[in-house]
Design a protein around this nucleic acid. Sequence first.
DNA 1: CCTTATAGAGTAAACGTTTACTTTATTTTA
DNA 2: TAAAATAAAGTAAACGTTTACTCTATAAGG
Lengths: 335, 335
Amino acid sequence: MKKSTIKDVAREANVSIATVSRVLNDTGKGYSDKTKQHVMQTIERMGYFPNAIARGLINNESGTIGVLFPAVSGMVSAELLHGIEAAAQAFGKSVIVCNTLSDPDKTEHYLQLLYEKQVEGVIFANERLTSDFQKMVKQMAVPFVTLAGTSEIEGIPEVKVNDQQASYDATQYLIKHGHSQLAMVSGPPHDSIAGTPRIEGFKHALADANSPCKATQISWNQAFNFEDGKHAFRSIMAHHPETTAIFAASDEMAAGVISEAHAQGICIPNDLSIIGYDNTKLAMMTVPALTTVSQEFDTMGYRAAELLCHSIMGKDIKSLNLKHKIIERESVSKH
Amino acid sequence: MKKSTIKDVAREANVSIATVSRVLNDTGKGYSDKTKQHVMQTIERMGYFPNAIARGLINNESGTIGVLFPAVSGMVSAELLHGIEAAAQAFGKSVIVCNTLSDPDKTEHYLQLLYEKQVEGVIFANERLTSDFQKMVKQMAVPFVTLAGTSEIEGIPEVKVNDQQASYDATQYLIKHGHSQLAMVSGPPHDSIAGTPRIEGFKHALADANSPCKATQISWNQAFNFEDGKHAFRSIMAHHPETTAIFAASDEMAAGVISEAHAQGICIPNDLSIIGYDNTKLAMMTVPALTTVSQEFDTMGYRAAELLCHSIMGKDIKSLNLKHKIIERESVSKH
DNA sequence: CCTTATAGAGTAAACGTTTACTTTATTTTA
DNA sequence: TAAAATAAAGTAAACGTTTACTCTATAAGG
């Protein structure tokens, strides 16, 4: 059963395809009420739906945006994507997802693909948009937005929280609650998203509290995940058994710390306080529930896609810093 | 700077567009080596990329598949999607994601959208494909696959684990380790995916162990999440304080049980054993780490998309039951 | 050396829409 | 009541490709 086209409808309804098209697009001109009814009925009866590809070709718009993630596994990406999709939907756009695995070749390949598919804009999520892609980005000539990431390329708006400030606040929160022996667990310090800025925030807060940060107070690892949190915490305890409070660069790492602390018989928050980062669902599930810095990923995703759509419609847009806040739960002792 | 088209390339290279097209598609016929080189160079120099929309129109293929999720937030969807994208990529297809929010109207709307976008296949994930959509599905005339869900519509392959069997095994695992006072926490019992089959598996295992299941041994709630797990567990403890082992219909619920147990001073696994379901990342992060039934979501997603792509290529395909297994961690005491 | 096959390359139709332009019929205006 | 304005509907070009078909020149065959 072949799909019916506008031609089929026109033939069935005894009108020209132009008329069908006009009715379809509800132009309000070019047909009488009677024909409109008639055409609509015919369309209904035949189960006709317009071919978006043909439409796209002539209107030069695909109704599609592309989203690049290192990997859409994990809570963070999932929530970002959820927000993105919601906004896109509100603007009548569809979302194509791509997993770059942080591989530049794959990324380049996906950009080409999206280019060929005539996407109207691209969201670059959770990763640094390096100047390697400058040429491609320029050539594509559609708006880009980075989401929970940064851009080396000039003129690309970023949607994110101010990581350094948020980390500063998290650290200060620990200090304010009476802690002076702090440590931090992090992923790679040169990670320009979750690494450097959070570490800087931590250091600054310490400096401002007159207890400059020693290198050994920061323990880092390959990634920002659970296992790395465990390992990092072990090494903290090896070097600084006096530590009473920890800032973890992600909730997953914090969960690792909690788990390892439990294994070592360290009681949270009595012996050790910990604050996380992200406020993923995980944070409320740990025992004790994790006090953490909230990034509202769903909202972030929404705002990024919204921004992108505005840009597609020709408005000019600028970077957006979303507010962070500290979600107080039970993992930090209050003196 | 307008995008260059095949015409521009043809003009620049002093050949016809047919020649360019042939070179582009590497047909092997219709051009000499010399022209090929020349055309390729021109393409490179101009930074030309073919317009997939125009291609799609004439070839009648969009290179796109659609994926419908109730919501892509949450670990499970994220991993499924990750697998889907990987397989799609391997088959040269792009993935459009849609969040139906389990709303039939939205679902219908998305199906229409995907139809108009000429997707070559659809994955219906994490949800029951009800006969409400039968008409639309038939009309779309492209392959469908359900993923981690079931279909009321005839002839649609399903990719999932055998939930009932897996639940049976999980329950039996508890029994085998010496537990006789079992209870289950679940979401809505009429949920045809995570509800009914898992409950049935639980009941059967109990029956086969000669301790038929009383209604109060199963506590259920609105959803399958953390809070619901907590509540369900409270009500279990109210009715059956003698319970020594719990089967949770999801890891999140299990986390809720763990959290609530901790609050009540119940020690896991000494006082109470618990087995979860899903083996999301969460399972290894709880304290103690959660013994659980593994569904390999990433693989499931991959296999579903793979199956779909095979179907698109005309092979005929059939439902796939992925193997489950029990991942032993620390939340079940062994006697 | 003439016929026939063959390879290289061009022409134009087709894919399913939208839309500017045109035609025809009807209504308004004077 | 004729001219002008308006509304309804049709015609055909265009969007950027692919591809069947055609044409030309060169190579092969006798």
